[in-house]
């Protein structure tokens, strides 16, 4: 009997796949699917009083969201900040990865490890250290004032959108490095030489060969940065002030001190859908763009 089961198992690829996937499947079900379902269902309820919730189905919370200018503008701001963070990260990480992939001959791994060195400390500590750098009496302001270049400290550095963008960019750069590096490192250097041999300048070669071939890495980096930064609330809470607040801070408030769980859940769902739409648009347009280039 056991023998029969064993041979049946050995012959069945789906059975093998499921047994390998099951630990992850269980974890995903418990830690993702269940909370998501809960959140989704809460978004269709109504908060009656501080402790009471009406469990009858309504889509009023979604209507509420779009009727509150604050929430809509926070959503737009969240997307905007994440977009800038993603762009700045790409523009700074890409050249670094390009250099390591094509010009570093020995110890490439060491370079990558060194680049991720700042990320060995906790995220929270790094956010706090930016406070020290950007603050009114921080490293930048005091040194500029001591050098006599400024009389008043720069106030836009701290508790602002700028502070959030700088901090998030630094916090997520390492995650962009890896997909970019892998996609660039995979490019056969003789393809680049071939393009040069066929009459293209360095810049043209980059546009026609290197960039299109590294596109999978670029898309990967965009998604890896964009998705978590849209929902980040630690950095805006600590460094954003009123100006740098994002939608996630509001969602946190709805689930906390404001205590309007259904509206919080609806806001979170809307954010989720927004991220999904942006993700699809980004992947689609980059693919189209690359076809246009080549």
């Amino acid at each position: 009997m056991l023998q029969a089961w064993k041979s049946l198992y050995a012959k069945s690829d789906p059975a093998k796949a499921f047994s390998l996937l099951s630990p992850a499947l269980i974890l995903v079900t418990l830690a993702m699917l269940v909370p998501m379902t809960l959140m989704l269902s809460f978004s269709f309820f109504t908060q009656i009083s501080f402790t009471e919730i009406d469990y009858s189905f309504t889509i009023q919370r979604y209507i509420d969201f779009f009727q509150k200018n604050l929430l809509v503008s926070l959503l737009i701001k969240s997307v905007k900040i994440s977009f800038i963070v993603t762009l700045v990260t790409l523009l700074t990480a890409y050249p670094v990865c390009y250099y390591i992939a094509f010009y570093v001959k020995k110890n490439k791994m060491l370079w990558l490890v060194l680049l991720t060195l700042p990320f060995w400390t906790s995220y929270l500590l790094r956010v706090f250290s930016w406070k020290i750098i950007l603050g009114t009496k921080g490293v930048i302001n005091s040194s500029l004032i001591n050098a006599g270049l400024l009389s008043e400290p720069l106030t836009f550095l701290m508790y602002s959108e700028t502070a959030v963008i700088i901090t998030l960019t630094h916090a997520w750069a390492a995650f962009a490095l890896l997909p970019l590096y892998v996609s660039l490192d995979k490019i056969d250097f003789s393809l680049i030489e071939a393009a040069r041999d066929l009459g293209l300048s360095r810049l043209e070669t980059f546009w026609k060969i290197t960039l299109p071939l590294s596109l999978p890495g670029i898309i990967g980096a965009i998604l890896i940065i964009f998705i978590p930064t849209v929902g980040d609330y630690v950095t805006p809470a600590l460094l954003g002030g009123t100006d740098g607040r994002m939608l996630s801070n509001m969602i946190q408030a709805y689930f906390g001190k404001v205590n309007n769980l259904p509206l919080g859940a609806a806001s979170a769902t809307i954010m989720l859908i927004t991220v999904a739409i942006v993700t699809i648009i980004v992947s689609y347009t980059t693919k189209k763009l690359s076809q246009r280039i080549s």
Binding site: D188, L191, E193, D197, I209, P212, S294
Partner: peptide
């Protein structure tokens, strides 16, 4: 112009 050892045909 060069014919490369691994041909270096642009894959995309």
């Amino acid at each position: 112009n060069m014919v490369f050892q691994n041909y270096a045909i642009f894959p995309h």
